[in-house]
Simulated scan of single mutants.
Amino acid sequence: MHMTQETETVGFVGAGLMGHGMAKNIVEKGYPLTVIAHRNRAPVEDLKGRGAKEAETLEDLASASSIIFLCLTASPQVEAVVAALKPGLKKGSVIVDCTTSDPTSTLRLAAELEEIGVGFADAPLGRTPKEAWEGALDCMVGASEETFARIQPVIDTWAGKIVHLGGVGDGHKMKLLNNFLSLGYAALYSEALALSRKVGIPIEKFDSVIRGSRMDCGFYQTFMGYALEGNREAHKFTLSNAYKDMRYVESMANAATVATPMASAAKNSFASAVAGGGDGPEDYIPHLTDFIARANGLK
């Protein structure tokens, strides 16, 4: 069992694709855990079976917790959840946002919470739901030294690699840079695969040249799980979330006066896929290949 000076009590909001595995690791490694249901009850029932308690309201969850993790879809949801937690928050507690959020929103929330004696940290994630379940996620943290020291042991339960980047907001800034690269790859791969097929190079042959070469990487291998093997769940991260992340990248660049010809091009690949019907809960990043193929007259 992990112990801190006084054992932290942990709250978890957002037991979805990533959050379920994270919460499982928190409770199984000995932290008292309180969860709350959203649309899907199955993860909450599973976590209760492992020893978690269920809160009826966000205010109740806040009252029961000294550290609260949020794993949501975007900044509007984070802002709404924080507002609902507020009446129950205890002075000295900490909220840790693992969502890929807009850094400007993050800094605003941190300032608001500081006024009522509540800490805030951003701790967005790298890797996939598979690593969440295995406790091997990457995590990039923006927090004061003091807050980081306090939350690190809990993050350790579900992360394999933790980098403390700097103050509040820095985790979210780095996460957007990280996703600019990964989603930029996704847009490149999708276009290259369409072109490959158009000029008569089958996907298997394309892959046999790239795999194991200097162009190969972990993201490529996960992404190709669908194009090559037809595994629809090769990377369970939705196209609509990817589109949102690229909009946040552009927003961050706009605020910093940086021209983004590459980021905007990648964003437009996702925009056209989402506008073309790729906005369902089962439409994941590797399926971008289908939308780009269709736009080029391929099946």
Results as ranks from 00 to 15, higher is better:
117 G>M: 10
35 V>F: 07
283 D>S: 05
248 Y>L: 15
204 E>P: 12
237 F>Y: 11
240 S>T: 14
172 H>W: 05
74 A>N: 12
270 F>C: 04
149 A>F: 06
260 T>D: 07
106 T>N: 13
11 G>C: 13
270 F>W: 09
207 D>S: 08
140 M>N: 02
212 G>C: 14
132 A>Y: 03
34 T>P: 15
247 R>E: 15
296 N>R: 13
186 A>V: 00
80 A>L: 10
172 H>S: 11
101 S>N: 12
86 K>S: 15
218 G>D: 09
224 M>P: 06
122 D>L: 12
5 Q>R: 08
15 A>M: 13
182 S>G: 09
99 T>P: 10
1 M>G: 13
265 A>F: 01
246 M>D: 12
49 G>C: 09
263 A>R: 00
170 D>F: 10
245 D>Y: 12
236 K>S: 03
221 Q>P: 14
145 E>P: 15
139 C>N: 14
141 V>N: 03
256 A>H: 13
132 A>K: 02
23 A>E: 12
266 A>L: 07
156 D>S: 14
165 L>G: 02
51 G>N: 04
183 L>A: 01
228 L>M: 04
239 L>I: 14
221 Q>C: 11
151 I>P: 03
126 G>K: 12
170 D>P: 01
244 K>G: 08
278 G>R: 05
192 A>Y: 00
125 L>I: 15
260 T>P: 09
176 L>F: 05
30 G>E: 08
18 M>A: 04
20 H>N: 11
209 V>K: 03
253 A>P: 10
16 G>S: 09
247 R>H: 11
80 A>H: 13
64 A>H: 07
178 N>C: 05
259 A>S: 14
53 K>E: 14
289 T>P: 02
46 D>T: 13
29 K>L: 13
183 L>N: 00
244 K>Q: 08
299 K>E: 15
2 H>F: 12
214 R>L: 14
237 F>N: 02
175 K>D: 05
239 L>Y: 13
137 L>M: 12
194 A>H: 02
186 A>G: 01
